[in-house]
Structure formats: structure tokens, C-alpha cells
């Protein structure tokens, strides 16, 4: 139904190449997340798929059909925008009904579909309100409602949760994941938040400066990052990088160790250091330790540990979990 295939797609604004030629395949029913720092081209890539921007070169096929020159509305896609882009002068009902009205459906059909969408999204009580009178989470639901009534072959989400507070973000994340499981429709989701990418995606596409750094499942990227950029971007707290003699001893320009792969001991270990900050979260403890040999490292320890700022401790990396990178930042396997 909703496969999306990009072949050598390129976008140039004036003399600036925003996206160098890219190849990408998103399978039908897949939840694909484009993730990367701001300005990496992830939103542009989404807008190319949506048809809101022309591709400078290359072809975009949707559902097996060449859609490169199709108008946005003809591509059978729905989009949820960062600002939700609700029509402020229309009620929630009219907002959700708008795409159906544009498609020329009979009023009875429109009513039935709007009702069904409102039930799915718990919006039944708000149908006659204006967007202004809704909370951020409710607006988000209306935007999703407007997207699902069209029964598109794929959904596009452009950083839909970035305007919500932290608690609501976690809840909406769950709701979107559930929606995907229920509808089984292809979803393409853009975010700068790697946690959203890790928790929601079937397939993550990591972008940096317009280029695709790596494509894979969340755990693939976590376990086997292709390069330093992906290694540093995926995972929280960030991976520690150590260069110099220590890395050379492992035959690499840089080695990376995730915070959970470092052990702390008061008595013995590889690197001696001083605790700069200890963050006690209850379930975990994050230690920032300035080591004498390997610079400042972040360490994650499960549960509570009785250490304090200023303590001298030893840090030992788990040798089996090292990531090695060459002088160009490419992973050595």
C-alpha cells in the first residue's frame, strides 16, 4: 500500500546543496523516523516526499507510482505539522472534515468519518470548539484526526511533539505508536529527539548535513553505529570518546564507550579520577568523573551508589563493548 522509494533525490536552493543525491526505501507499514540535529535536512526531505518542495533531481515513488511531479494533494499522503497548522477560524469538526470536503464526499459520509476519528482520538466532546480553546495535546489530536480521515497511504509527521511539555510528549508518543499499531499504515516521522526515534521507530534514518549517516533499526544503530556521528547522536547520556594513546592501544584513532559500559570501583581499576558531579536519579546514578588518563567521562550506574562529589574512584571500561573508529570517524569492525 504505502511504500516510499527515493532514487537519487537531490535538493539545491540557489548555490546551497541542502540534500546531496539520496537513495532511501521505506517499506509499506513501516514506522520510519528521520532524526538529526537542526539544519540536517530532515524536514526538507519530508517536504520533498510531501510535494511541498520540488526535488531538484531524482525520482520519488509512492505506492509503486512515480510521484515526483504530482501535486501534494494527489500523492495520497497526510501530514501533521509542527505547529499543528489547524485552521483557526474553523471548529474542530470542520477542521477534521476539511480534507473530506475538498475530496467532494457526501455530507453523510463526512459526518460518519469525522465521528469515527473523533472517537478514536477522544475528541468527541470538543467537536464544536475552535482550536484556540484547546490545549496543546488536544490540538495535536485534532491535527492527527485531520490526517487519519483521509485514509492516506502514508502519514508524514514534522516534529509534531516539539511544542508540547515533557509529560504530554511521553503520552502523545505512546498514542502515536498505538495508532500505528492499529492502522498499520506507513508513517514517516521527523524529530531531533533521539529518544523519540529510539522509542517509536521500526527504522531510523540518521541525517547529518543532508547526508544519510546510517539507516537501521533502533538497536542496530545503538549496538553497531557506523560512525562517530551516529554513535554520539544515538543513546543518552552520550557515548564517551577517548583518543590518544588509549585509543591507539586498541588500534583506533578514537574509541567510544557508552556510559553503561563503564564500571566504578573505590579500590582498583584502569583509570583513576575525581567525581565532578554525581546525579542521583534513584533508578540510576550518573557520574561525571574527571579521570587523569582519559579525560572527563560520563558513567551510568544502576540504582543508588554511595559516592559524592570529590571522591577519588577508579573507572574500568568493559573491553567487549568498545566501539573503535578510524581517523575519519568510520567504525572499525
Amino acid at each position: 500500500m504505502g511504500s516510499i522509494v527515493l532514487r537519487q533525490v537531490e535538493k539545491v536552493f540557489g548555490d546551497v546543496t541542502v540534500i546531496p543525491p539520496i537513495d532511501l526505501e521505506i517499506a509499506d507499514g513501516e514506522f520510519a523516523v528521520f532524526v538529526g540535529p537542526s539544519g540536517c535536512g530532515k524536514s526538507t526531505l519530508l517536504r520533498l516526499i510531501a510535494g511541498l518542495e520540488d526535488a531538484t533531481a531524482g525520482t520519488i515513488s509512492i505506492d509503486g507510482r512515480d510521484a515526483t511531479d504530482l501535486a501534494p494533494a494527489k500523492r495520497g499522503l497526510s501530514m501533521v505539522f509542527q505547529s499543528y497548522a489547524l485552521y483557526p477560524h474553523m471548529s474542530v469538526r470542520s477542521n477534521i472534515a476539511f480534507p473530506l470536503k475538498m475530496a467532494g464526499l457526501a455530507q453523510a459520509d463526512i459526518d460518519a468519518k469525522v465521528k469515527a476519528a473523533a472517537e478514536t482520538l477522544n475528541l468527541g466532546d470538543y467537536l464544536d470548539r475552535k482550536p484556540k480553546q484547546l490545549s496543546g495535546g488536544q490540538r495535536q489530536r485534532v491535527a492527527i484526526g485531520r490526517a487519519i480521515v483521509r485514509e492516506p497511504s502514508a502519514f508524514l509527521f514534522d516534529e509534531p511533539l516539539s511544542n508540547l511539555d515533557a509529560a504530554l510528549r511521553v503520552q502523545m508518543r505512546l498514542e502515536i505508536s498505538q495508532l500505528h499499531q492499529k492502522l498499520k499504515t506507513t508513517m514517516v516521522y521527523v524529530t531531533h529527539d533521539q529518544v523519540e526515534a529510539m522509542t517509536m521507530a521500526d527504522k531510523i534514518v540518521v541525517l547529518n548535513k543532508g547526508r544519510i549517516e546510517q539507516v537501521g533499526s533502533p538497536l542496530e544503530l545503538y549496538r553497531r553505529p557506523a560512525n562517530r556521528f551516529v554513535a554520539g547522536f544515538i543513546g543518552s547520556p552520550k557515548m564517551n570518546f577517548v583518543g590518544g594513546a588509549i585509543a591507539a592501544a586498541h588500534g583506533a584513532a578514537t574509541i567510544g564507550i557508552r556510559p553503561e559500559n563503564l564500571a566504578v570501583s573505590r579500590d582498583a581499576g584502569d583509570w583513576l579520577g575525581t567525581i565532578v558531579v554525581a546525579e542521583h536519579l534513584g533508578s540510576d546514578t550518573f557520574l561525571h568523573i574527571a579521570t587523569d588518563a582519559a579525560g572527563t567521562l560520563t558513567i551510568r550506574v544502576s540504582g543508588e551508589v554511595p559516592v559524592h562529589h570529590g571522591d577519588r574512584v577508579f573507572v574500568t571500561p568493559d573491553a567487549s563493548a568498545l566501539h573503535r573508529f578510524d581517523d575519519k570517524g568510520i567504525a572499525i569492525r
Partner: peptide, 14 residues
């Protein structure tokens, strides 16, 4: 906001 007009375009409005 330009996004609103784009939303309309995505929604099939000419």
C-alpha cells in the same frame, strides 16, 4: 503561518 496553507494543500485544496 505558511504551514496552514501547506496543510490545506496537503488536504487537497486547490
Amino acid at each position: 503561518p505558511g504551514e496552514i496553507l501547506e496543510a490545506a494543500r496537503m488536504d487537497g485544496a486547490g
